[in-house]
Design a protein around this nucleic acid. Sequence first.
DNA 1: TGTAAATATTGATATATATCAATGATGGAT
DNA 2: ATCCATCATTGATATATATCAATATTTACA
Lengths: 231, 231
Amino acid sequence: MVGKAQNSSNCKDCNCKTSIFNYLTPFELELINHGRFQVNYRAGEIIFKQGTPSPHFVCVTSGLAKLYIEGYGKNLILALVKPVDYVFGPGIYVDNRHHYSASAVEDSTACLVDVNIFKKLIRENPDFADEFIKRVSLQAIFNFEQVISLTQKQMHGRIADALFYLSEKIYCANPFEMTISRQDLADISGMSKESAIRILKEFKEEGILTIDGGSIHITNPKQMRQISETG
Amino acid sequence: MVGKAQNSSNCKDCNCKTSIFNYLTPFELELINHGRFQVNYRAGEIIFKQGTPSPHFVCVTSGLAKLYIEGYGKNLILALVKPVDYVFGPGIYVDNRHHYSASAVEDSTACLVDVNIFKKLIRENPDFADEFIKRVSLQAIFNFEQVISLTQKQMHGRIADALFYLSEKIYCANPFEMTISRQDLADISGMSKESAIRILKEFKEEGILTIDGGSIHITNPKQMRQISETG
DNA sequence: TGTAAATATTGATATATATCAATGATGGAT
DNA sequence: ATCCATCATTGATATATATCAATATTTACA
């Protein structure tokens, strides 16, 4: 499902553009606009795969995507990416390969931008470079928290962290419609699907949350925070 | 233990300088040289602590340091840093705070460079900036591998990974003198000290390695690789 | 609307790993 | 040399978590 950009004539007017683009001049935005692609993905489709070349910078403009490492028999979801956020793998400055895979969780659209244009702008526009490094740094900090959660907390704490992540960072709502699967929740939390389900059930029984179809409501965020912190 | 730089009169002639400094002009190196500090640390001393301000870029010029996150009751060692490598926490572009702690494992010396000078050079010298981003990217890739090892491998695989890391990346020798403690080994591998010791013992009994005092010899690297890969 | 496929749920069981507790070794300071 | 403190080792036990297997539920699609 590939086609020329449709939902806006160019990057300058695109209200989907990620905020680091605010540091670009109109001329620089035009550079990015030139030759970019907009692509549509159905839920489940792979956007790019770990190990393949990464000639593009990917900006998710609608839907929801997941970034995941394909490990030993199971996946670890590093992050969910919603509009308007972008995916900039570390391979671009190293070996031009993707070091994790990305796929659409919901039907999604993304803009693909030639990575060389991006790198050129990094070199030419220090404000843009600073902002980019800041983004990469924020990602690293987030990863640190994630590693600690995964390696030092027990399952309850990890599920609590994942639910906060979904509620606060991804869906930005408290009763939220969970569009990811239980397997995805498990892959975020580094545990088996069955364990994730069981803990969800316990939280429900303890009155910490309610589940209504695909909708999850954290009714006792304070206690859930407690669970997150005590591991 | 703080004193003005001693082991070289300035950064330009310092044969300890980390390779990204190769992208700097003599004038720029002089900028770094001006006002930098060299500090000596005894084994065990803290170089900087998680949560504190990070006004400096730290370059380890002798000895061995560890970077670790202080988590819930235990530490996770992110990396060991040997000469000549540098420590550049992600907080510098975000909140000017350290997001992990660093301490000297062996008696060590380090050069501290004002972070603002560093950031200024990033803005002014695109080659330097590119190289810096590359380093940050390499670090991110390494972290991904680490997370997968920690979350998806069993203890045997994790200890194997840690031993390869020590042998190949840190001590760069096969019978190597292990200057880190068993607790450190456990903190690298995300397990209890007792478990780390037990696995070391098993490896010894299976003839995969020999331990002679503080020296460890991986006598069957092939089998150890196997263990690393089968988790 | 009905049917197959995918996903979710639950229970029973096996096992990897941590914890606790005790003992042994090692290295520095006096 | 001796003592104390730290570190390493070992064993016994508890427990968190995965795995396996069966069933229920939802979703997609003809």
